[in-house]
Write a protein that binds this DNA or RNA. Structure first.
Lengths: 100, 100
DNA sequence: AAGATATATCGACTTTTTCCGATATTCCAA
DNA sequence: TTGGAATATCGGAAAAAGTCGATATATCTT
């Protein structure tokens, strides 16, 4: 786990927001439901994109960034990709801070 | 405390190194001593610069960045500026991660 | 007061990041 | 199997960050 890359991924307002949104999807995504909202695999790109106000390509890239450093997991189901927080990495990040 | 700015400051290899160097100055700065090394105000810019291998201006700016976000404290004594970890902010950062 | 030393700031250039629109890919449904 | 929907990828323009050398500022010494 590259510390610098991890911090870079977190050094962006929108990416940070996505991470907090994913903490309680029911709260942050109005029409979150088991269709594109699914049960527990996460939230699909479109929902996140709409909420962010940025373009589809930008959000897709941001999610890919978060995924690359392991902050979220990605699950493809049909035409949707569900993104979900990876609590394990986030916890590890906490420890990392301590070793800072 | 701006989260994004904090993460930006940490999203750089050299700045991260500086932070860890300052954790145990005696260990990381060979000729650390109460002259420019002082007792407990921190380590002067020159020492950090030499160890980093980057130019004086770059390191001065990096330290200023770390100081701006509160990760280090700066104490001017004579012609030297001593930089020291600000453990308080670093601890707060740990909590911040938890609220992520 | 003048020169030397430590640090800060400025201007420039290069690299990286941010974000976009357009296009490609994948999968579903009719 | 063709069209539509969701996502990914590509290419680019603009902004920000990295990094330097040169210069400015502050302080110490003589």
């Amino acid at each position: 786990m590259d510390q610098v890359e991890l911090f870079k991924a977190l050094a962006n307002k929108t990416r940070l927001q996505i991470l907090t949104w994913l903490k309680s999807p029911e709260e942050h995504f109005p029409d979150y439901e088991p269709a594109c909202g699914s049960t527990d695999v996460g939230v699909c790109v479109g929902y996140i994109q709409k909420k962010s106000g940025l373009t589809q390509s930008t959000i897709s890239e941001y999610l890919s960034t978060l995924h690359r450093v392991g902050l979220v997991s990605a699950t493809r189901v049909g035409q949707w990709t569900y993104y979900k927080r990876n609590e394990e990495t986030i916890a590890t990040l906490g420890n990392l801070i301590d070793t800072l």
